[in-house]
């Protein structure tokens, strides 16, 4: 594991790819690897791109890669696509739009299947970002479709989120009510070459204006972009840069990252306790018997539960 971690930190492609697979498959050694990489993390800027299917997220990512490369930055992309709930298979299509960077050795693109996690972001994604961060990429871009109802929200793992919206997706305001508007730092109205983009912009600005009625300086930027026509990118890149500067100078970035760790800690603790219960309490073996006892009214349900838990914890701590 030490060798793998060392190679990742040295930026060796094969090792980076392997490290991500390790996390993805929850293989033995995953935790050790993350521990070893931990000292090397925290340097990369982590940029999230999210929005509805087909909004142009990958096309935009492709252009952002080019922009980063012009600045001499090394870029990595993690693109999450849904797995089929029926077969577990997945056709990972995001990479296609970024394939023109395939030969650039300072660009690393990884497609991930959501493997059952709603919205696509899972612990594996979190780990993948860590691996890429430790590997020395200046920027890590994370593309997901998920908004809300996910195991991990994209805001929880990135420094800055681009929320991509497009005209003609039906009742836009409706979508905004559903909490979507909460997650973006920068609002990107893509496909501005199409009809309805201006209307959408007005609507977005209206909702944002409402939210920040008393503190307009906090209002999120709204960028009009056409990824297809390659328009509006410079403005977007500038806004992102500014937002970053603002975050890091004001100490917000640090705060954000610490909060992120807090959330992660809570999540991991609760996941581990789950695991423990499943494993050590032989939960699945006994549950039938327990149900029988409750059904037969032989025990009081809560008293039984509390006592069992108490016994379990005592045994564990011995």
């Amino acid at each position: 594991m030490r060798d793998l971690a060392r190679d990742i930190v040295l930026g060796k492609t094969r090792a980076i790819a392997r490290g991500i697979s390790l996390a993805e498959n929850d293989s033995l050694g995953r935790e050790e690897l993350i521990d070893l990489l931990h000292p090397h993390t925290g340097k990369a800027r982590i940029l999230g791109i999210t929005g509805p299917p087909g909004a142009g997220k990958s096309t935009l990512a492709d252009l952002l890669i080019a922009g980063e490369r012009r600045k001499g930055h090394k870029v990595a992309v993690v693109a999450v696509d849904p797995s089929s709930p029926f077969t577990g298979g997945a056709l990972l299509g995001d990479r296609l739009r970024m394939q023109s960077h395939a030969e650039d050795e300072h660009v690393f693109i990884r497609s991930m299947a959501s493997r059952g996690h709603l919205g696509g972001v899972s612990r594996a994604t979190v780990d993948a970002i860590k691996v890429l961060d430790a590997a020395g990429f200046d920027t890590v871009i994370v593309e997901t479709i998920g908004v809300g109802q996910t195991e991990v929200d994209i805001i929880e793992l990135t420094d800055l989120v681009l929320l991509v919206l497009v005209p003609g997706m039906g009742d836009e305001i409706q979508a905004m009510k559903a909490g979507v508007m909460e997650i973006g730092d920068i609002f990107v109205i893509n496909k501005s070459d199409k009809e309805g983009a201006d209307k959408l912009r007005t609507e977005v600005e209206y909702v944002l204006g409402f939210k920040y009625a008393h503190e307009m300086e906090k209002m999120n930027p709204v960028c009009m972009v056409s990824a297809k026509m390659k328009q509006g990118l410079e403005a977007l890149e500038e806004e992102a840069e500014e937002w970053f500067q603002h975050l890091s100078l004001s100490g917000l970035l640090e705060q954000k990252r610490k909060e992120r760790i807090q959330k992660e800690l809570k999540r991991i603790f609760s996941a581990k306790i789950h695991e423990l219960l499943d494993k050590k309490m032989d939960f699945y073996n006994n549950v039938e018997e327990w149900a029988e006892m409750i059904y037969q009214k032989k025990v009081q349900p809560y008293r039984f539960i509390n006592e069992s838990l108490h016994d379990f914890l005592k045994k564990e701590s011995e």
């Binding site: 577990g88 298979g89 997945a90 990972l92 990479r95 296609l96 030969e103 990884r110």
Partner: peptide
């Protein structure tokens, strides 16, 4: 059939295919 599949699109050089294969592990 339940596999995770990545497709490159047409006109790929040998180099880009190999780089892709490695990055995607």
């Amino acid at each position: 059939e339940g596999y995770e599949v990545i497709y490159t699109g047409i006109r790929q050089t040998a180099e880009s295919i190999v780089k892709t294969a490695i990055q995607e592990d």
